[in-house]
Nucleic acid binder design. Structure first.
Lengths: 259, 259
DNA sequence: GAGTGGTCTAGACCACTGA
DNA sequence: CAGTGGTCTAGACCACTCG
């Protein structure tokens, strides 16, 4: 191993960060191979004349990155790259359109107050069909092309009026917070594939039986009660998800690309 | 805020962990709301008679969990729950079948040595069409039902024979490492939706134009050169992805469910 | 028992914020 | 300026591994 690597104690860059990058580069250059042990914490501390706590902080960064793992009483070892845990980050299909530099617009097809039917009663864990829900139907477009069709429901607390500002933040959590006093604190999304129905095809301006992403989102409050639900359809010929895993050179995690 | 919360310094559970859970529960119970400041590090250290470094480690856990954020010179504040960054973990569609308690089997449809055509030359960044690749076609089944069709390519290093053991580990990275000396260290997956072709429909035993997930995976070595590529088709009526975000009660991240 | 990583301390100095 | 979080130190004791 190359002994001629330095740490600049007077740099504005923290020592632990310099050391973490130094160790990382040794691994990425193949000088330290999976299964091999790093020098012990005390060794590293002595070699660079720094505190062991600082060494530990550097190693903690590598552990978080999944590049090494520590075993009490034995040592710290280079991990084999994990390749079977790819992560797709679904920031927001629509946000990504903006990042792509395209003009994005949301069109409101309708906003209604509806009674809970059997499906909605199950989703919102309601025991009375008299409960009223707000129902929004929107279409997302980019450069005059319709890309997605979204149907969103939120419980209706009478104390608040239906706001016109809903379209400024057309996300499900935006609708929920704009029309209720509850704070959504967690969300679940289920991604499936399907093909367009006649209605969906007409709204999106594409053919029937075209492949689409289907995403059902449920928002929960602090008590873990559902406060919002949506079912959205995204054109399969315009959306794709990209994910990464393993030893990555950049913090290059996931994202959505327009196809 | 409830003052009657304790830390047991003699517990086997680390102090930083106890403190992190204590602060977390205050946030989850709504005693600390988004935007509000946590007590300062020195305050917490004095109140529980512990070191400030230990307090910092506890807070670091909450920062990692995304529940609070620190601002130098100002304080540490409860973060509003992030709901727009749902993460789908794609461990391995096939692994999940096993976790589900189903009998999983992989059938080899064919293993050939092929020349690189134009598409493969582009994917593997080759400049000569004389390069040979190993080509594997497999079908994944569960309980006698065919669920996925996978086509995998890896560069062929002549020093190694084609191994029968390939089916023990039918993953792309398994094929690459079994047939080459290179170590794949990173992977990219692209997820799209499509509908079955006649060939794919016949292989999976389902109808033509049925919705499917399409996942293209590329494996890279330390020099960031592609060493493996696969295109897999997963039945849309049998697979779905589930992801979560926000303040979660469990470490409940993502996964794949059979529909 | 010697050597490893895991936790914790009591201080120190710094960079940044805001009155 | 006082107060905050960010970094770093030089020790201490512990739990664990392995010969």
């Amino acid at each position: 191993m190359n002994e001629e690597q330095f740490i600049d104690k007077n740099s504005v860059i923290p020592i632990y960060y310099q050391l973490a990058k130094l160790l990382e580069s040794q691994i990425l250059r193949g000088e330290l191979k999976p299964g091999e042990a790093l020098p012990t914490e005390t060794e590293i501390a002595n070699r660079f004349e720094i505190s062991r706590m600082t060494v530990r902080r550097a190693i903690a960064e590598l552990i978080t990155a999944g590049m090494v793992h520590a075993q009490q009483g034995k040592g710290t070892f280079v991990s084999p790259p994990k390749l079977n845990n790819v992560v797709f980050e679904l920031n927001n299909f629509n946000q990504e359109i903006k990042d792509f530099g395209l003009k994005r617009s949301t069109t409101l097809l309708g906003a209604h107050i509806v009674r809970a039917d059997e499906r909605l009663m199950r989703i919102f864990q309601l025991d009375s069909s008299t409960t009223r829900l707000l129902y929004f139907r929107t279409v997302v477009s980019a450069e005059d092309e319709r890309l997605a069709y979204e149907r969103k429901y939120t419980i209706y607390s009478k104390s608040k009026p239906i706001l016109e500002s809903n379209l400024k933040d057309p996300t499900l959590s935006g609708l929920v917070t704009a029309n209720n006093d509850v704070l959504p604190v967690s969300t679940q999304k289920v991604l499936q594939v399907s093909v367009t129905t006649a209605e969906e095809a007409a709204i999106l301006g594409i053919g029937v039986n075209a492949p689409v992403f289907v995403i059902e989102e449920t928002l929960f409050d602090l008590e873990n009660k559902p406060v919002g639900w949506s079912k959205s359809i995204y054109r399969g010929d315009r959306y794709q998800l990209t994910g990464y895993d393993g030893w990555l050179r950049k913090d290059n995690h996931g994202g959505i690309n327009l196809g």
